[in-house]
């Protein structure tokens, strides 16, 4: 499985998609992000892991300004993330995000969920948006649920709709914020499979996840965070077999015990 997936994964270009340079963030007095530096090239797949409260979700939520950083630079697909609303809009259009709790719109059907942003943000004709949405729903293997409401679907199906909804905006980068943490064990696989397929298509991905198997097979790099700092950053093979810092070793021994 591992080799097969790695072979299918496309080459990484030199083009930098996301760059975070010495990013710092405080919640009041609390220093949540300490000097974060991450560079993601087009087609790269980064997995962020670490204990809860280590700042990994906050890090990726800074990329599309769901959280505001106080110092440092973030540049996404060539656009600097500043307080300029225009820039924020451009970046949000190019960055898709999948949440732990799906956050589908419960008053809209699956198809309407997928078409909302293309129609209202990209000003796409409704017909065209629907065609694209149906294509992505086919890719996540639930085209027959298109006219149902989110409340009528299982958790795994909802998360796949959420992935399709993000893809409909044709984003350059996808952010995953613990996409499988709210799912039953048997549904985790269907969502991970979808994410693996996405990786095979060359999507640039930043994933916060506790799925170490996913990290091993798909990631180019694993970033380990603790206490708001990046402790270690390495390729999966080195990261799992030869962790450098003591904190990483402790974390891996706890997480890989079962």
């Amino acid at each position: 499985m591992s080799n097969e997936v790695q072979q299918n994964l496309m080459a990484i270009s030199d083009e930098i998609m996301v760059e975070m340079r010495s990013v710092n963030k405080w919640y009041g007095e609390f220093h949540v992000l300490k000097d974060i530096n991450i560079t993601v090239r087009r087609g790269e797949r980064i997995v962020l892991c670490g204990p809860s409260g280590s700042g990994k979700s906050t890090t990726i939520r800074c990329i599309n300004r769901l959280e505001e950083h106080q110092t440092g630079d973030i540049i996404v697909a060539g656009t600097p993330l500043t307080n300029d609303l225009k820039n924020i809009e451009v970046i949000r259009r190019e960055v898709g995000m999948v949440f732990q709790h799906f956050n589908l719109f419960p008053h809209l059907t699956v198809l309407e969920n997928c078409c909302l942003a293309p129609v209202w943000v990209r000003k796409m004709p409704k017909k065209e948006a629907e065609e694209i949405a149906m294509n992505y729903l086919k890719r996540v293997k639930i085209p027959d649920q298109a006219l149902k409401y989110p409340g009528q679907l299982s958790g795994g199906q909802q998360q796949r709709v959420a992935i399709a909804r993000s893809l409909c905006m044709n984003p350059e980068v996808m952010l995953f914020d613990e996409p499988t943490s709210a799912l039953d064990p048997e549904m985790i696989k269907e969502v991970l499979d979808t994410m693996i397929e996405l990786a095979e298509d060359g999507m640039t991905m930043l994933c916060v996840t506790h799925e170490m198997g996913f990290a091993k097979t798909v990631a180019n790099r694993v970033v380990f965070m603790d206490g708001g700092q990046i402790i270690e950053e390495n390729c999966p093979h080195e990261f799992f077999n030869n962790p450098q810092s003591e904190r990483t070793q402790l974390f891996l021994s706890q997480i890989l015990q079962h």
């Binding site: 769901l66 949000r92 960055v95 898709g96 995000m97 949440f99 719109f105 909302l116 942003a117 993000s166």
Partner: peptide, 20 residues
Amino acid sequence: GQTEASFALGLSRPKMLKLV
């Protein structure tokens, strides 16, 4: 989460209020 999902999709604040 509804607000965050709307923002993540690029909806502006008025559109988020109106549509979501």
